[in-house]
Write a protein that binds this DNA or RNA. Structure first.
Lengths: 199, 199
DNA sequence: GGGGAGTAATTGAGTAGCCATTCATCTTCT
DNA sequence: AGAAGATGAATGGCTACTCAATTACTCCCC
């Protein structure tokens, strides 16, 4: 029998999965704690044994996803064998694949997290900054290698890249068409690299 | 004496202004209809003589702002004397100035409009598409003039541009620092034009 | 130019519904 | 047996929206 800690963890995951599904479909304010509990197969009260509040569930969804996200991006950026351009392309592709493979999660990231300045600040202060810093490191490496234009502001460039990826994801979430989000990776990388490269 | 139609219109404007203020400060779900009424100096019920529902107030804020926005952008794009690059720079500057000059409105645009897929879809279907089309026309003109790379997808490029502007605005809204949003126009234009231009 | 009938606009207290959270009770583990 | 975990009905607070009552306009006639 598995340690009860592991079973508790699995139950928590089930609740988070249920919440992702419900919130993606009905929005944060349209989702009731009861509906999350029902889908997770637990009682309403049980949610409160695992989370402080409904908002804490939302924040936990963000934290879990962001951990995976940053973990994988870290890998790419830390790869000593790769050049800046290759890392750039891989990071763009990673961002678009992770969101593109889980539409419910993408909906939550692109739409539901932005509910209120309050929540957004709470979240963006922490992890998004880390993520931006990773992108900035790739840009910096490109400048160091002499392939990216030295006069561009590194952090500004990172925000530009993030903004483009974010818009691609939002557009994909809102559009009915069945393209794969990841298919945008190449043209988007081309366009952005065109702006960064020394011509 | 002004036709009563004009006074009604002025009252409607007052309510919208009050709503912008309240919603920017407390978020859409944190704002009560009562608080909007109080700030506008009318009774709760009066709101419902001018708007179908609370959501309709939000949508009306969007419609009013977007009309101004698109009107001014139209001007720039229709200017026959200007080249694509100049129009491009002017459009970028317009976007960042209009939002940068009214932080409350910017908060609503960057944060509050996104609270549910429902509202977002409602809105994005209509006006944002028009706006994207305007940007696309500038890109197309650049290709026609032979200064922008012909192989870039025009609509994709427009979305990229929009995404970058959107991210700049969100970043500005969330950051405490007191830079002017419009000061980003030049470096951002440079970066984007670098990606679009034939090198 | 003012009185007043008729209409339009406004008011705000009340209603109805919703839902996050709690906790006394029960079930399952060790 | 005792502890730990889970349950779900009940509670309390909140607020969008309604509507009967009131006030403000308009305009016509003297």
């Amino acid at each position: 029998m598995p340690a009860s800690a592991a079973r508790k963890e699995a139950k928590r995951e089930r609740m988070l999965d249920a919440a992702v599904l419900e919130i993606a479909r009905h929005g944060y304010f349209g989702t009731t704690v009861s509906s999350i509990a029902r889908r997770a197969g637990v009682a309403d009260g049980t949610i409160y044994l695992y989370f402080k509040s409904k908002e804490d569930v939302l924040v936990s969804i963000f934290q879990r996803a962001m951990q995976q996200f940053i973990g994988e991006a870290q890998h790419i950026v830390d790869d000593h064998g790769a050049g800046a351009e290759e890392k750039f392309r891989r990071t763009v592709a990673l961002h678009l694949s992770l969101l593109g493979e889980n539409r419910d999660l993408a909906v939550i990231f692109q739409v539901e997290f932005r509910h209120t300045l309050h929540v957004l600040e709470l979240l963006s202060r922490s992890r998004i900054r880390d993520y931006l810093a990773l992108i900035a490191r790739v840009v910096q490496q490109g400048k160091d290698e002499g392939v990216f234009r030295p006069e561009v502001d590194t952090l500004l460039a990172a925000k530009v890249v993030f903004g483009v990826l974010d818009e691609m994801a939002t557009d994909w979430v809102l559009s009915r068409k069945n393209i794969r989000l990841a298919s945008r990776a190449e043209p988007v990388s081309d366009l952005l690299l065109g702006g960064l490269r020394i011509s």
